[in-house]
Amino acid sequence: MVVSMTGFGHSSKEIDSSLITVEIKSVNHRFLDINLKMPKQFMSMEDRIKKLISKSVNRGRVEVYINFEGESLAQRSIQIDWNLLTQYVQSLQQLKERFSFHDEITLSQILSLGEGIDIRDEATISEKIETVLLQTVEAAVKQLTDMRQIEGQQLAIDVKNRLAAMSEIVVNLEKLAPKVVDQYRERIEKRVTEFVSGKIDENRILTEVALFADKADISEELTRIHSHIHQFQESLQADGPIGRKLDFLVQELNREANTIGSKANDGKIAKDVVELKSIIEKIKEQVQNIE
């Protein structure tokens, strides 16, 4: 099945009084590139989320947006540096004794230190939240892959139609190619006749025509184009990622078309080559989106 690299998926799931929302979008890319944007409390889940996505997506740049609404995931806690505070109190006591201060050491003085007491947010995710998060990602990925498959089917139909049009042009070129040699022979005979008053060196003409036929021969290029089209059609029926192979075949088709164009000594052939290259370019654009 042909799969597109372009798609979108969305899913939301409630958990207690909170809501987890996942949005995934993908575009074409040479390899699989997954980028996650989510609350820092979920960062410990990054590898598991990427592995889950990579089970269904083989190529493309995938952007994942995860949002959490509801009670904070962070648990706040107080961290006290007892050693630092002990030194601070001892130092104040020494100051009092040395300079005969009578002020009492108060809690506000200790708190004014600004250090020693730290309030921290500890990221803690319950097993329940982890499970719901992965379920939400999985549902969004399902939407994404469904959309990629639907678009892939449309791409396959379009490419098959263009391959059929290309095959018709190749068949027409096969009919035109021999006529080019015959027409060249007629032109040579006409020119020679005009210059030698009807006396024609048949061997010289045969030699010239043979040289021209060898230079203008496009039979090998047409045979290879037929082969590439057949491989293209087979690949469209194959399972798994096929985009890179199709991209290679497009390059080969384009190379053969360019070679035929350089050999073309006929207006009709040149016209068909222009149409052939136009079709190949349109196929190339579609192949860029195939996984």
Rank of each mutant, 00 (worst) to 15 (best):
S126G: 11
D146M: 11
S126M: 10
L133R: 01
T86E: 15
E256N: 11
E256L: 12
L36S: 11
P178L: 00
E168W: 00
E168D: 14
H230M: 09
S112T: 06
N203S: 09
I225K: 01
S197M: 08
G267K: 01
N67E: 12
L111Q: 10
R204Q: 09
Q93V: 02
H29G: 13
Q183G: 02
Q87P: 00
V57F: 10
D217Q: 06
K40M: 04
A74Q: 06
A213W: 03
K128F: 07
L113S: 05
V64H: 02
G116P: 05
N254R: 12
K268Q: 07
F195T: 11
I15P: 09
K37Y: 10
E130Q: 15
K284M: 03
S126N: 06
T131M: 03
F68Y: 15
S56I: 04
D247C: 02
A264I: 04
Y184W: 05
I283C: 13
K51V: 02
A257Q: 06
V159C: 15
S167V: 00
V274S: 03
Q75W: 04
F8C: 07
G152D: 04
D47C: 00
I150L: 09
Q41F: 05
W82F: 05
I129W: 02
R48W: 02
G243H: 06
G60C: 09
S112R: 12
S112Y: 02
N172W: 01
H228Y: 12
E115C: 03
G267E: 00
P39D: 03
G70Y: 03
M5I: 12
N254A: 08
G116N: 08
E130P: 03
S91H: 11
F42V: 02
I110E: 04
R148D: 09
F8N: 07
Q41M: 09
N83T: 14
V159G: 03
I80V: 15
L222V: 08
F31D: 14
S197K: 12
K175H: 03
N172Y: 00
R76P: 06
E256K: 15
I279K: 06
R224S: 08
E122G: 04
F8M: 06
G114L: 07
L236E: 07
E71G: 04
M38T: 13
R187D: 01
E122P: 02
D33H: 07
D272A: 11
F8D: 03
Q79G: 01
Q109F: 03
I283Y: 04
V62E: 04
R162P: 08
I157H: 13
I53H: 12
D239R: 08
I283A: 14
Q231P: 05
A140V: 08
I260E: 09
V89Y: 08
Q87N: 15
I125E: 07
I125G: 04
S91Y: 06
V2T: 15
L32T: 12
R98G: 03
V273L: 02
A164V: 14
M43L: 15
D214R: 07
V196W: 10
R187W: 01
N67F: 09
L155E: 08
E234G: 11
Q90K: 13
E46A: 12
E71W: 00
E174A: 00
G70R: 01
N161W: 00
